[in-house]
């Protein structure tokens, strides 16, 4: 208990120390505001209503969470389909490994051609970058399940759905979560890159807007907001993992 409390204290201290160092650096170094604003100036940018923070957060948040959920469902479903058919897996898996090598950012201009710009194509961007780690780790997790366990269910003429809900999904869960953690980080990057390439709202779009006028405090605030969105998503994944996966079964 004591050491847990100590770890929390240290974690908070580290964050506070960074902000203090940032403040001192700007203050003592007399760093111009357009190069690096002080923490105060950054916070001040958040209070300006003309940036429309909440609307932009909502847009970027929708892109991240929407793309991520899509990646989660598609990744698990595809991996499950592969667990049913060895031929299907042998056919698609090498292809997917190749597709995984595509820098998803390079797809950005194409996605704009195909889907115009806006929330949907940016969700697709987040999806395309987050789906692979989830798919690959889930497939791995499903492969690790002992075939005799599947035999046990089959000998009782259990349905595929029972096989999935009672054996495969809970068995692969530690692996799925390790993919979900990687995917969470990537989904945030995907959505922002999507906004950089083409959008008319969102935090990434806002950054491009204020960059023109060298409004660095707003850019700083936008980066902080994006980071916080990522932390919320990652935190939710960790919380779910804590709730669903027995401690001794977790995969780092």
């Amino acid at each position: 208990m004591n050491s847990k409390l100590g770890r929390w204290t240290l974690a908070i201290l580290a964050h506070v120390a960074l902000i203090v160092a940032w403040y001192l650096f700007v203050r003592i170094g007399n760093v111009p505001r357009f190069v690096m604003p002080s923490p105060g100036a950054t916070l001040d940018a958040f209070l300006q209503p003309n940036y429309d923070w909440w609307a932009n957060i909502a847009v970027t948040g929708t892109e991240i969470f929407g793309g991520y959920l899509l990646a989660l469902v598609a990744g698990v479903a595809l991996a499950l389909a592969f667990s049913w058919s060895k031929t299907l897996e042998a056919f698609f898996m090498p292809l997917l490994v190749s597709l995984n090598m595509i820098p998803k950012v390079a797809l950005g201009p194409l996605i704009i051609v195909w889907f115009k710009y806006g929330v949907f194509p940016n969700s697709i961007m987040a999806f395309s970058i987050a789906v692979f780690p989830i798919l690959l780790t889930t497939a791995r997790g499903l492969r690790e399940i002992e075939p005799e366990l599947l035999d046990l269910v089959r000998s009782l003429r259990g349905s595929r759905w029972q096989l999935f809900t009672k054996i495969q999904l809970p068995g692969a869960l530690p692996y799925i979560f390790s993919g979900m953690k990687v995917g969470a980080i990537l989904a945030v990057a995907g959505a922002i890159v999507g906004e950089f390439l083409g959008s008319d709202k969102g935090l990434g779009y806002l950054m491009l807007q204020v960059q023109v006028t060298l409004d660095t405090p707003a850019m700083f605030m936008a980066v902080i907001m994006i980071t916080l969105l990522g932390m919320v998503l990652y935190g939710l994944v960790l919380l779910l993992e804590r709730l669903l996966v027995a401690r001794d079964a977790r995969v780092a």
């Binding site: 002992e146 005799e148 366990l149 046990l152 269910v153 009782l156 259990g158 029972q162 009672k166 054996i167 809970p170 068995g171 869960l173 996966v245 027995a246 001794d248 079964a249």
Partner: peptide
């Protein structure tokens, strides 16, 4: 089987109940 192959996320009683659930 040779290995017990119990589901590690289930308590012993729930492990024993698996076939009953499937049926």
């Amino acid at each position: 089987f040779q290995a017990p192959l119990l589901l590690k996320w289930r308590r012993i009683l729930d492990n024993v109940l698996l076939p009953a659930e499937i049926l």
